[in-house]
């Protein structure tokens, strides 16, 4: 249950095989939800859960899925799962579902989900697929949180909506919040900086 291969499936997406910085998946949603920390964390958790669940479902079905319509089957499974989860939340945890309503569309079309289903769940047993889903979801969440931390801190001067930099003494020292940080392009630049840092520290990732 916790063989070396399973451990790899769970842990490499956090570092050497990170879905955002190495596989370059899920960039679009990384732009959309990282202006604030809170939505970034919510999105990270939701993607983790949905990736793990859909990986398990597809992995169980993998031997029966007709090859020519496999992408459609994957999409239907993901969309059905997300819809069911959001309906259940709407009935039993209404406040959370209101917060998540923005993300439902973003989760269904998140390329991390499709990428992992196609690359991993179609070839592997349910348990490793589950771990792979959790690992990739957390790897994605990790990058979102780093990006959102910098964007919220330097863009709005807050963290989790709590004031950090908006004081008179800071303003008098000549510091102003950078509005560009709140714009989507800044997320790309921060992701690029993370990729740069990661490749500089890992010889394996450098192109020869």
């Amino acid at each position: 249950m916790s063989s070396k291969k399973n451990k790899e499936a769970l842990l490499t997406p956090l570092g050497l095989n990170n879905p955002v910085t190495v596989q370059v998946l899920g960039i679009c949603s990384a732009l959309a939800v990282t202006a604030k920390l809170m939505p970034a964390i919510v999105m990270g958790i939701s993607v983790t859960i949905i990736t793990a669940l859909s990986n398990v479902v597809i992995s169980c079905l993998r031997k029966t899925i007709p090859l020519r319509i496999r992408i459609i089957v994957q999409l239907v499974v993901v969309a059905a799962l997300v819809t069911i989860v959001s309906e259940v939340l709407k009935a039993f945890a209404y406040d959370i579902s209101v917060q998540l309503s923005v993300y439902v569309g973003l989760i269904i079309t998140n390329c991390i989900l499709m990428g992992r289903l196609e690359a991993f769940a179609m070839q592997n047993e349910p348990w490793p697929s589950f771990l792979d889903g959790i690992g990739n979801g957390l790897g994605y969440a990790k990058i979102l949180i780093i990006v959102a931390f910098f964007r919220e801190l330097f863009g709005s001067g807050t963290l989790f909506g709590v004031n950090i930099l908006n004081y008179d003494c800071v303003a008098n020292a000549g510091y102003v919040n950078n509005g560009l940080m709140l714009m989507p392009p800044m997320a790309l630049i921060i992701v690029a900086c993370i990729i740069w840092w990661q490749r500089a520290h890992n010889k394996d990732l450098q192109q020869k």
Binding site: K63, T64, I65, P66, R68, I69
Partner: peptide, 17 residues
């Protein structure tokens, strides 16, 4: 092995799904 390449199977699968 299921006949995952055949047309009939594909249609039946899609309809059932």
């Amino acid at each position: 092995k299921l006949p995952t390449g055949s047309n009939a199977y594909t249609f039946a699968y899609a309809a059932a799904m």
